[in-house]
Design a binder for these strands. Structure first.
Lengths: 137, 137
DNA sequence: TTATTCCCTAGAGTTGACTCAAGGTCAAGT
DNA sequence: ACTTGACCTTGAGTCAACTCTAGGGAATAA
């Protein structure tokens, strides 16, 4: 089973523009073409695009993702680099998770803050907090 | 206690350029000035900048953050909007957490994949996986 | 056979969020 | 007095990651 660029765009929720851009940036050296020059995506190409999306979500810029793609072409001699890269990505994502949890903590506090203000009809119910410990702001 | 723009930049790990940019974009209407025109940040300004950073981390664009800042100036009449905004942010962050967990799952799988490949000295140990269920790829 | 709907390339334009350069003010130290 | 360093404004520049336009090709449905 193969896919057109439009099929893949739908599957991965990207635009065809984005996919062509990725190709231009060297992220899709394994995608073959028809006689007429149309891209033909194999299952393995879609899987690799999934990994690319994963690396992007981990905060990796496209330039760095291209290095990884190049390592793939170089075979077993780059196994160590690729391993190291994923280990490094893992700790980057762990850090992001911590940050996101802090963000969540503050947002949940604000939900409570505005819920109680709405109940009271005015934000003034929190006025005294500003003199207090600061914990409840 | 008050702070100069440089103090605040250090405190929040931003550049003074960024802070001036935020000001230009309308995120800092409450910051006062000296006779000479220098910005003077109060504790409450720093706290608001913390909330701004939190909203940014939640994926909110600066334009939308400005709306929130405007609501602050409008007092109790915008309590509902502000509450709704934080509730919406909360679900946005929940979604991000889920996405990040999926990213982590794939990255951890890749760590395992490359660890075993390194142990074997070749990626070929995973060759059969491609014919299998796909679970171990 | 003609219209529609994909697909293609090269290259220009857009967006968001900074980031900096130029030219100037002001207060503190020497 | 003068130099240093931190501050100011306006406006231009940068960067990543798209996003689109123009101009064209091929296949397929009416």
């Amino acid at each position: 089973m193969t896919y057109s660029i439009g099929d893949v765009a739908k599957k991965l929720n990207l635009t065809v523009y984005t996919l062509r851009y990725y190709d231009k940036e060297g992220l899709m050296p394994f995608v073959e073409r028809t006689n007429g020059g149309k891209r033909v995506f194999k299952e393995s190409d879609v899987e690799l695009l999934n990994v690319i999306e994963c690396l992007k979500s981990s905060g990796m810029p496209i330039k760095d993702i291209r290095n990884f793609i190049e390592w793939l072409s170089e075979g077993d001699s780059t196994l160590q680099q690729r391993y190291d890269m994923f280990v490094e990505r893992k700790s980057a994502v762990e850090k992001q998770m911590e940050e996101l949890q802090k963000t969540m903590d503050l947002i949940e506090h604000k939900c409570w803050y505005y819920q109680t203000a709405l109940d009271a009809g005015t934000e003034d119910v929190h006025k005294s907090d500003k003199i207090g410990s600061g914990v409840f702001n």
